[in-house]
């Protein structure tokens, strides 16, 4: 039998080392309310779900379904989206604490690459220089989606490329 949302909240809260009181305080509810959710006596308000999921470090979808989103997924031909409807996301987190998020529709990325543009010119990060973007496009066209690249440089910068 699958776990209830209450079980999941309880488990994730314990994993994070948060007490019911802490959680209640951060969400602006009473500790009794949190206890009721965890014991499946009541459910959290729908408007609280984004806050709860953020606090527990999961997505709302994962919180509700209990299924963690796979980092990378291979989709069979029938389930694939048109590549032009996909989004190419670059996440750069520098060791100094700077964050860069770039969201580009795949159609634009494809066109840019056809024209000979390089991604470091778009994101401004040298860690992307060694990445073969044409190969990435080929992988996406073959049905691979999700987190396709995760690079950590020697100075602690991390770069992730996600296709959704």
């Amino acid at each position: 039998m699958s776990k209830s949302i209450g079980n999941r909240i309880s488990q994730l809260r314990r994993e994070k080392g948060i007490t019911q009181e802490d959680m209640a305080e951060r969400l602006g509810v009473t500790p009794q309310a949190v206890s009721k959710w965890e014991n499946d006596i009541s459910y959290p308000d729908i408007l609280l779900l984004p806050k709860i999921s953020k606090l527990l470090g999961v997505t709302v979808d994962e919180l509700l379904s209990g299924e963690s989103k796979k980092d990378t997924e291979f989709l069979p031909e029938g389930k694939r989206k048109n590549i032009d409807d996909m989004m190419f996301r670059i996440y750069v987190n520098s060791a100094a604490g700077d964050k860069v998020r770039v969201n580009l529709p795949m159609a634009l990325v494809k066109m840019g690459l056809e024209m000979g543009m390089n991604m470091p010119q778009v994101s401004g990060n040298d860690a992307l220089k060694e990445i073969n973007f044409e190969q990435l496009i080929y992988m996406v066209e073959s049905g691979l989606i999700g987190k396709l690249v995760e690079v950590e440089s020697a100075d602690g910068d991390t770069v992730e490329i996600v296709v959704e």
């Binding site: 520098s94 100094a96 604490g97 700077d98 964050k99 860069v100 998020r101 770039v102 969201n103 580009l104 529709p105 159609a107 634009l108 066109m111």
Partner: peptide
């Protein structure tokens, strides 16, 4: 042309978000 098409398809799309420390 593609950028204009994108604008119609994804209005208010956040292209870049930079947060410094």
């Amino acid at each position: 042309k593609e950028i204009r098409k994108t604008k119609n398809k994804y209005p208010h799309l956040e292209l870049v978000n930079v947060e410094s420390s």
